[in-house]
Each structure stands twice: as C-alpha cells, then as structure tokens.
Design a protein around this nucleic acid. Structure first.
Lengths: 151, 151
DNA sequence: TTCATATTGACAACATGCTGTCATTCTATA
DNA sequence: TATAGAATGACAGCATGTTGTCAATATGAA
C-alpha cells in the first residue's frame, strides 16, 4: 500500500502545511503563557481584546475572530462571571446585548498586552521585520487562495 | 487604558502570528474535509499516518506528533474499536504495545492520502514551489527561535 | 542485585473549539 | 402592513487537545 505520488509543488505545499500547523500550536501555547499570569488564556484574551476594540454583541465578535458564535458566548459568559466584562443594552437590538469591558477587564487586558509587547518586540527583533512582513504577505495570499477554493 | 507601544518589528511579529494561527485553522479544517469521506478526521489521520510510517507505542506517536500521550491514546483506542489499528506485543516492552495498522486501516489511510495528494498538488501549483519553499524555511527558523526561547 | 527514577497506559477532569436545535427578535420584501 | 427569512442567544452534545494522578513496568546507578 504505497503513498500516492505528489508533484514537487504538492510536496512543497504539504511540508508548508505541516510547519504552519506546528508553528501555530507553539504560538498559541506562547499566548497562553502570556495570558496565564493574569489568570487568563489565549481564547479569553482574544475576546477581551475584541470587546476592548469596540463594544459589540457576541455574534459579532465571533465573526471578527472567525469563530463559531457559541464558543465565544461560552467564554464571554465566563468572563462576565469573573467580572471582566458586562452586557450592556444595545439600542440597535433588544436581544443582542453589547459586550463591554469592566475596569477590571481593562486592567487584565492591559497587563496581558504589556507582556505581549515585550515578547513580540524581542522575537520581532530576532527574526527581523523584512522576513516577517514578506512571509505575512505570502501567508495572507495562501489564506485567500484557500478560502476561494472552498467557495 | 492605552495599548502598550510595540516596536515596528514587534508589530510585524504580532501580525505574522495572527496570520499563522488563522491559516493553521483553515488548513486543519481542510484536512478534516479530506479525511471526512473516509469517516475520519485530521487527528485520526495523523495517528494512522504515524503508525503506518513505523509501528510504535502510543507514547512514541505522541512525541513524534508533538502531542500529549493521553490524547493520542484516546484516539488510538477509538481507531482500535473501529478496526483500523490493533495493538501488537512489543518485544522491547511488556506494557507499551505497538500500534499497527490493520488492512482496513491501510485502505482508509490510502484513500485519505489519495485525496490529499490531489488537493496539495492543486494548491501547490497555484501558489508556486518557490514561495512555499522559502516560506517554509522561514517558518522553520521562527519555530526554532520560539522553542529556543522557551528553554 | 537493589532501589530510586523514568516511562507507560488507564482514568478523570477541564478548556476550547465545533455542530445542531429551539424560541425570540430583527429585517426586508411583497 | 404582513410575513417569511435571517440573526441571536440559550442549551445540549461531541471532538480534540490539555493537565493531574495512579499503578505497573523498565532502566540505570550505586
């Protein structure tokens, strides 16, 4: 039972995919480490950051982050229990309350972002802006190709 | 409560991180789609592929894939229930049985790999080997930097 | 050879994502 | 204006990963 043949470009894409997934796993772990001193995680941090950027309903945050609405809802409810966010009435929609950071939530987010800035600065300096910028452009193009393909 | 300042390189690294995580999420989804016609998923496929490459104990597969041994164990047990793998005695270790593909498991893996080859060939051709190869090299270097940083 | 240490599998608890279903609330079109 | 369809939150169930703990088994050093 042999492995099916791939073209050289196919092999290149397969290797590329594996390294992207590996690296993403490590980056998420690093994000968890940055958020942990504040008692948070990557997922909670993303929700806090989205709500900080602009108060929006949970479903809107899901769209912005590219996640299912229900997962964001569960995290937002936990954050509310911990007093980091609160639901405010939405003048434009009776059911879809706006998610807003509390003072405590803002302090926690700021703490995480301070640690993240030092971490990103250090790694950015080590790797170099040029490589990061060109690579990000290629990654974005590939993401577009992937999304296009699934449409 | 302002967002802490980052250097230009820090900004570049932050943007890069986001695109890596986004792309990895889409690639995993694509992998699930490739495995689904065979009734499998990305995670099961990775375990099948590892066992196919060489029969090894569950803990060894976990190390190869960079996953916790317990998660691999749960998946391997499910694959055994479905008759895709079996545990064989390990002459080198009484407890750590070797995970081996059954004929059915090999057929399922081959089916997935055939679909994956066509998919990788198409996207590889669209994006181009050059960009893929250079990007993969940079990603690998960044992964090394990350791992080094956490040691 | 003995014994401290590491490895392994089993089991349990939890975090984070997904899909599906339902009732409620908006929204846009006929 | 009515009303069909879309959007939203609530709730439930599942997949995949994590950590922690325990007993059984290997392994290496004294």
């Amino acid at each position: 039972m042999k492995k099916p043949d791939r073209t050289a470009a196919g092999d290149a894409f397969a290797l590329f995919s594996i390294s992207v997934i590996r690296l993403a796993s490590h980056l998420t772990t690093a994000g968890d480490a940055l958020a942990k001193p504040a008692g948070q995680s990557s997922a909670r941090w993303q929700v806090l950051a989205a709500a900080s950027h602009a108060s929006m309903p949970v479903a809107e945050i899901g769209r912005v982050l590219g996640l299912a609405r229900q997962g964001v809802q569960r995290i937002a409810d936990v954050l509310e229990t911990e007093g980091l966010v609160r639901y405010e009435d939405n003048p434009a929609h009776q059911r879809a309350k706006l998610l807003v950071l509390t003072d405590k939530g803002q302090a926690v987010l700021h703490d995480i972002q301070t640690r993240q800035a030092a971490w990103a600065d250090a790694l950015g300096a080590e790797i170099g802006s040029d490589d990061l910028t060109t690579t990000t452009m290629i990654l974005t193009r590939i993401l577009d190709d992937l999304v296009k393909k699934n449409r």
